[in-house]
Design a protein around this nucleic acid. Structure first.
Lengths: 154, 154
DNA sequence: CGCTGCCTGAGAATGATTCTCACTCTCTAT
DNA sequence: ATAGAGAGTGAGAATCATTCTCAGGCAGCG
């Protein structure tokens, strides 16, 4: 298979993951390392089962229960982000420094990301107005992407 | 476009629901009437099972499967709105003319609604910038409500 | 009023996620 | 290093919201 992927973007060495975990107070195990690495390599919006499948195929076997446990733990530590696009299952991606939201196409299912800092500010303002201290949020727009929109709305 | 709604508060007569269904091309059944009426009477964020419980207690018995089927159908016709507040189950409410979003308290679980028309506009703009035709959206802010925030962050 | 076909209900099925618990491994203190 | 304590793991069972199945019912048209 392909070699250790692009060391620049996704090629986190074991040593740095170990250190990352230590900094966050997370006990290091190879399973946890594998899961985090797989989420990062997947690139986008992967679900637990697919993650489990990939891990079983290559590298070391990791139990499905552990995949779920680890994803939840990584989420609590802010290392992965969880979304749900009107589907039953959750999807995960590496938590970026900057937050982004999602455009979900109802026709082809494609999910694209977008950022709109102004929205974030307004959200914060709206929350504050209600005496609410917002920690995180989830914003998803449902509709038709460029390709499908052309097809469906003449 | 007739603004015939709010017959008092909950007192929608059978006749108007019948007509409403007809206008939407929905076959009228007493079960469907009961479900819609119960959602409206519940007032806020009720889930399918609770709805089923209430219907079984009072009025006519309605099967759980029918509750689910009907909720989905009413949602597709824009008569009820569905949300999911980080829980497993979905919650439903009467679809209002104006859209609103939700503030979900991570401590006490309380859900309050808010409106921020400016956010809606920005969303629309962001979507358009990506060639995306937005039909609906879902925005939830997670954090601490006024009461819980005082307790947790002194 | 009688068909035709959509609607309903009870229970089974589904499927994503969580739980259980015996066993294993990590980490810290020796 | 090493051992001991305690947290992590895996396989399968359990959970549980939701959907499916299909025999029997009604709605609505003619």
């Amino acid at each position: 298979m392909t070699r250790q992927r692009a060391q620049g973007r996704t090629g986190i060495e074991s040593r740095s993951i170990r250190r990352l975990f230590r900094e966050k107070g997370i006990v290091f195990t190879t399973q946890r390392e594998q899961v985090l690495r797989a989420v990062i390599e997947a690139g986008k919006h992967i679900d637990a089962e697919e993650l489990h499948r990939r891990l079983s195929a290559s590298r070391q076997r990791v139990g499905l229960a552990t995949v779920y446990r680890t994803l939840q733990m990584l989420r609590e530590h802010g290392l992965v982000a969880e979304s749900q696009f009107g589907e039953r299952r959750h999807r995960y991606e590496q938590a970026e420094g900057r937050h982004h939201d999602h455009l979900v196409c109802l026709a082809c299912g494609k999910v694209q990301e977008f950022e709109e800092p102004a929205i974030e500010q307004l959200q914060e303002r709206a929350a504050r107005r209600h005496g609410f201290a917002a920690l995180s949020h989830r914003l998803e727009l449902y509709g038709y992407c460029r390709a499908c929109g052309r097809r469906n709305t003449p």
